[in-house]
Simulated assay, not measured.
Amino acid sequence: MATRYRVGNGFDFHPLEAGRRLVLGGVEIKHDQGLRGHSDADVAAHALANAILGAIGAGDLGRHFADSDPRYKDASSIALLEAVWKLAGGQGWRLGNADLTIFAERPKLKPYLDAMREQLAAAIGADQSRVNVKASSPEGIGALGRGDGMAAAAIVMLEAD
């Protein structure tokens, strides 16, 4: 492997919908709405998976787990992230670090951030010290600020074995 380090970024956005459970970073959160999507629509896990795929030059999550494929209907996004990490690890990559930001007006996510960090780190077999998860409120601005949806952004640095 000629390149010793790779960096990738990922972003994901899903609308909120009544009658769905809210899952962020692999953690189920009590809320009156959940994220709408083909899978469980976990924007944090999706953003991290997309960042990893970007770093290894393997497209995006939709390329590997099409929303038209019934096998992924209501799939656990943590399971999808684990599959993405298996692909990266199989190519000789290990995590340098990952940094994620979740954008949500409500609910307040601070009480859940440590559990999300734990779940995401476990999914990619990383020490929690290499994964950072934070939340940011859009302060009422735009679709996210109105509570129409949630988004997440992630960046990763991978190192060659």
Rank of each mutant, 00 (worst) to 15 (best):
M1P: 06
A2W: 01
Y5G: 06
N9D: 06
G10Y: 13
D12L: 05
F13M: 09
P15D: 14
L16E: 04
R21A: 04
L22D: 07
L22N: 06
G25V: 13
V27Y: 08
I29H: 07
K30S: 15
G34Q: 05
G34I: 07
L35T: 08
R36T: 03
G37E: 07
S39H: 02
H46M: 10
L48M: 11
A51K: 01
I52Y: 00
L53I: 04
A55E: 01
A55W: 00
I56F: 00
I56E: 03
I56V: 15
A58D: 00
A58Y: 00
G59M: 03
L61V: 15
F65Q: 09
D67S: 12
S68M: 12
P70S: 11
P70W: 12
D74W: 15
S77A: 10
S77R: 04
L81I: 04
E82P: 00
W85T: 08
K86H: 00
Q91D: 02
R94H: 00
G96H: 03
P107S: 03
P107M: 04
P107N: 02
L113K: 05
L113V: 11
R117H: 05
E118Y: 00
L120C: 02
I124Y: 01
G125E: 03
A126F: 04
A126I: 04
S129P: 02
R130W: 03
N132A: 10
K134S: 14
A135R: 06
S136H: 14
S137E: 14
E139N: 13
G140V: 12
L144R: 11
G149S: 09
G149C: 10
A151V: 11
A153N: 09
A154W: 07
L158S: 03
E159T: 03
